[in-house]
Design a protein around this nucleic acid. Structure first.
Lengths: 188, 188
DNA sequence: TTAGCTGTCTACCATTTGGTAAGTGACCAC
DNA sequence: GTGGTCACTTACCAAATGGTAGACAGCTAA
């Protein structure tokens, strides 16, 4: 599943054949089919695991962190950490969500709780005066798109003479936090 | 080429077979091969056209617009306009760039001028005191990632109960411009 | 010892895929 | 009218793809 996750994220689902995946693992394609039944079964398992892992990582990031700006900072930090440490986690989710029915729906179901939780947190923060009022969804989707876009378009980073390493991620994190700070900071 | 661009952007290059593409067009696969020689030939043509179109659109957007913030605004407006009007333009570039050698290099060559131009414009603005100083590359890549991420992850938009329509794009544009305004506005 | 289960393999299979070869009709210059 | 080019077709083909069937070895429980 780890190999499949990486392969799906890097080469796409359609671009990953069971034969090739099996060869990478030093087994035959039939071994994969034995464990997952079909390619769809493999996709399903990979999707479920990735969503679970992502939720766990973000959950861990905000655990014990106080609501408001510190939580935002923690999530952003964790997201860019994932983008460097496990880019395939975000990549495979996007890749599977793009497959169309019924995969988009499955992915959507699995990610909905995360989205809802973030929206609620932002709105709560706004209500509590910790954040400036605004459209939480627009802010969330913009922030997510930065992380997702950076992971997905690593080729474009190269066009700018950058790599998705720790230093770049730190710079991007600072930039995104400035972005968010500007939009969320309560007017004084 | 228009059909191929849309198909590549939506289903990926590997996920688009010549047979299917031909069927959509009401011709045979051999007709496509006649005009483009091979699938690679088609990809190459689509890539070149997409890069050219993107450059032309952005060029037109900043033509006659004064340097500094108005230019930033114009580019952001044009980008989100493209994201709504012609999402396949951005999508296909990302999709082809992801194919690995030698496609990434080709795509990179074609997009490099755009990137360079944007970097120079930002740095000039900083030198002229129109913008706050900062890392132009980080700002550019972040801003690009917002647009790219929104186009690529249209499924996630749905998870938030949003569509990539004119209204949403306008909201995202305002959000991104707030982001950029906060990072670029000269300190007073 | 043996029966059964598990994980893997070899051997196939039908379909799909990118690509080649050889035509066929329409048009056009001479 | 006739030769040639252009756009497109039908008829194939070899390789790759997802998937099935059945054999085989290792392990465990009776």
């Amino acid at each position: 599943m780890r190999a499949a996750t990486v392969a799906f994220a890097e080469r796409g689902v359609a671009g990953t054949s069971l034969d090739l995946l099996a060869a990478e693992l030093g087994v035959t394609k039939q071994t994969i089919l034995y464990h997952f039944g079909s390619k769809s079964g493999l996709i399903e398992a990979v999707l479920a695991r990735a969503a679970e892992d992502l939720a766990a990582e973000l959950e861990a990031a905000v655990a014990g962190v106080e609501a408001g700006w510190p939580s935002v900072e923690a999530v952003v930090r964790a997201s860019f950490g994932l983008a460097v440490r496990r880019p395939e986690l975000l990549g495979v989710l996007r890749e599977i969500a793009r497959l169309g029915s019924p995969w988009s729906e499955s992915a959507l179901d699995l990610l909905q709780p995360l989205v809802d939780r973030a929206i609620v947190a932002l709105n709560d923060g706004m209500d509590a005066g910790l954040f400036q009022s605004g459209d939480a969804r627009l802010i969330l989707v913009s922030a997510y798109a930065v992380v997702s876009g950076v992971v997905a378009d690593s080729e474009l980073l190269r066009a700018m003479g950058m790599r998705l390493d720790l230093r770049t991620a730190a710079g991007l994190r600072r930039t995104l936090l400035s972005f968010l700070g500007a939009v969320l900071a309560p007017s004084r």
